[in-house]
Write a protein that binds this DNA or RNA. Structure first.
Lengths: 236, 236
DNA sequence: AAGTGGTCTAGACCACCAG
DNA sequence: TGGTGGTCTAGACCACTTA
């Protein structure tokens, strides 16, 4: 137990997810909670603001904090979600590493990754197979200097895990871009396109704490199996 | 001037956007700012956290707040963005109201909008024309009781404006879902599909402060003109 | 060791909602 | 009018970075 406000957040979030706290009811007031959790009001408010940002409650001034029916909204996927996290919710998912090599970046790549010197870049291709069909082609580019020692095993598992837990680098934020394009020859070769005329491309730019770009990823999806969910909350 | 922390946020955000504060430099420390803005540290921190959440700065413990190059990341579109806001960044944009009628909801619609009684529902169709091509078909469904008095003029302008500024209802949060589907007969009829085989469908569920659903919208895009940008920040 | 941001406290006043 | 959440203060201790 380190952060008091995170503990409180976790406790309440768990209760809401399990249904122990019913949707459409009010949480105890902030002042009640200061007593119940033996802490100050600002700390309670930190926890409640997190709950609000993550779609668990809705705060209304003069009234209280209303519990939102989380199951009604299947849930914020927004943010940094790796394929592995998604896959855990499904069965029959397999990853095939189609490519793992070190390349010299061309001019375009240098621009994308903000490279000036001639660093080597990991080029990784991974095919995601769901229920026996090859649905997603993930193409990753990472600067070797920052992420040494990649292996096929790591790629088949989760690169995020490796970076955060083994290398102890902190991934901080990401920009995501979604577009729909004609399939390339590579898409046709590697994916089971089944006559589909487009692929959905998700471009992901992942940054470290110090705002340097660490990874550029393209995730190329067969359109019928693609679904993106975003949960937006008005801030002010 | 009401909120101190919002004023400080606005001031610094403006300076970053204009380039008055250079990217990759450090902001003054929080303690410096308490003096400069004549306020407490927690208030400064509120402003800085907003800046961080909106992608202007990156806070690093023990170091300081690094200014991010906002022009490098075009910018957070994530959230509640109406077509009108998007259109203001483009030229040659036109809205054609193809339908505005009151309907009795069918079973599916009742489920989507959480209706029990037999309320009437606004059905609105709007075609968005960009550079003379019909690119987007927006279909909106709103509960009449909550949003009375809709006219073609309002629909051609912005429904959000009407709801927030005329009716004084507060839109609070929204769930967005993106999928790619085969065009319907209606899509083929109303849009210039130019031989494209898919449309990108953005489903939008908009909620009021009290967590009741207020609007369901489908925005149907020709795939080549569709682009979605999301800016995600790790919270903990 | 000095300075930074992260957490936490115990108070205060305000705007808003309900009975 | 009493209770709610929203803002703000002046202080404290801690973990982390940098020199």
């Amino acid at each position: 137990m380190k952060n008091k406000y995170l503990s409180i957040y976790d406790e309440i979030a768990t209760q809401i997810k399990s249904g122990e706290i019913s949707p459409d009811t009010l949480l105890p007031s902030e002042n009640d909670m200061t007593v119940r959790y033996d802490t100050s009001r600002e700390t309670i408010r930190k926890a409640l603001n997190l709950l609000s940002q993550n779609g668990f409650i809705q705060k209304v001034r003069g009234k209280g904090s209303i519990v939102i029916d989380v199951n009604k909204f299947d849930f914020p996927i927004s943010g940094l979600v790796s394929f592995k996290e998604l896959a855990q919710k499904m069965d029959n998912v397999k990853t095939i590493v189609s490519e793992l090599s070190l390349i010299k970046p061309d001019a375009n790549m240098k621009r994308q990754l903000n490279l000036t010197s001639n660093n080597s870049v990991w080029k990784i291709g991974r095919i995601r197979e769901i229920d026996g069909e090859k649905i997603i082609l993930d193409k990753d580019y990472l600067i070797e200097e920052l992420v040494p020692g990649l292996t096929e095993e790591i790629c088949a598992d989760s690169i995020y895990n490796y970076v955060e837990n083994e290398l102890h680098l902190t991934i901080s934020f990401a920009k995501k871009e979604i577009v729909v394009v004609e399939p390339t020859a590579e898409d046709r070769e590697l994916l089971d396109l089944d006559g589909f005329h487009n692929v959905v491309v998700i471009k992901n730019y992942v940054y470290f704490d110090d705002t340097t770009l660490f990874q550029y990823t393209e995730s190329r999806h067969r359109p019928d199996k693609f679904r993106f969910v975003d949960f937006a909350r008005r801030t002010h």
